[in-house]
């Protein structure tokens, strides 16, 4: 019984993973429809495991694993390469996808080391620059105020 159970479990996990992806940006915006003008539902943080339910244009309807929250995210905001991560790790381990998703490669640790070695770099202003993020719904507002349509062309 035990002998059968383990391969079965492995196969089940494999098929679950085959349909899954991971958020590869800091925060992926989740919308009710495949459009940046649709109702904004929230953010999915980096590394969130999602299932791809449907794709349309540059968008995908996804379900976040764990809580099952669903909505549309841009296809660019996730990667399906986590699958390679498992398989590739067994071979030479040279894929950069694997390196980075495993928390390797250029990281906060590397940035810290780089900063220490180069103390004249102005990271303080870069941090201020990064803090200038404007939420998508406000950008929609900006486009619409100017008579622009975020889905292309003037209305």
């Amino acid at each position: 019984m035990k002998k059968l159970l383990i391969p079965c479990l492995l196969l089940v996990s494999w098929s679950l993973w085959a349909a899954s992806a991971a958020v590869q940006v800091k925060e992926a915006s989740l919308y009710a429809e495949p459009s940046a003008t649709a109702k904004f539902l929230g953010k999915l943080p980096y590394g969130t495991v999602i299932s791809i339910l449907e794709t349309k244009g540059g968008w995908a309807r996804v379900a976040a694993q764990g809580n099952g929250l669903t909505g549309w995210v841009r296809s660019l905001s996730y990667t399906t390469k986590t699958l390679d991560l498992k398989a590739g790790a067994q071979t030479s381990g040279a894929s950069s996808t694997e390196v980075s998703l495993a928390g390797r490669g250029f990281s906060e640790e590397v940035e810290q080391d780089y900063k220490t070695k180069n103390p004249t770099l102005d990271y303080a202003d870069v941090d201020k620059m990064e803090a200038q993020g404007i939420p998508d719904p406000d950008l929609d507002g900006f486009l619409q105020d100017g008579g622009l349509n975020p889905d292309g062309g003037r209305p």
């Binding site: 943080p45 495991v49 809580n67």
Partner: peptide, 20 residues
């Protein structure tokens, strides 16, 4: 809700080797 899931996902590589 997702914090726990993320941790799971990020710690994947070690277990992932099993799938080889």
């Amino acid at each position: 809700a997702i914090v726990s899931v993320s941790f799971g996902a990020l710690s994947l590589p070690a277990h992932a080797l099993d799938f080889g």
